[in-house]
Design a protein around this nucleic acid. Sequence first.
DNA 1: CGAAATTTGTTCGTATGTATC
DNA 2: TGATACATACGAACAAATTTC
Lengths: 79, 79
Amino acid sequence: MADLDHEGGTPLYRQIADIIAAQIESGELQPDRPIPSETRMAEEYGVARLTARRAVRELVERELVYVVRGKGSFVRPEE
Amino acid sequence: MADLDHEGGTPLYRQIADIIAAQIESGELQPDRPIPSETRMAEEYGVARLTARRAVRELVERELVYVVRGKGSFVRPEE
DNA sequence: CGAAATTTGTTCGTATGTATC
DNA sequence: TGATACATACGAACAAATTTC
């Protein structure tokens, strides 16, 4: 699992964000349920925590995720 | 705010360092109080974090600032 | 009540690659 | 050729909120 392209074009954080986004849109990750923690994602995809963190930031900017400090990051429910 | 001269002569990092230095000398930034973080400065002046970092290095070389890893950069108190 | 574990938040430290002047 | 500057990425330290026991 979690084969990222370390070569050219797409940054790792965006690749990860795209994977999570797909899981949200497929319903694999459900509204108001947590997505994997930054630490978990870092392990999962073999990246640094900060890179996982950037992926989460991307998802927040895409309005797919909201974050609660000390608790986790969650799938944003539909309007 | 924070209009830097992207044209000729003075490097961006030195321009930023000069701005911070002026704020220190005016008392706007006080001894043992933090100066803006590298990330903050990067946003503020529209430069890369590494460029902000070079500005901080300049200030350290001028003995106006000291840096503590994981905490921040601070105005160096008078002798 | 408190201590520990988990999780996000923020900061500086470092390295590589690319582009521009 | 060298200095400047940007983007990405990993590492390390510290801080704060939350949960669990």
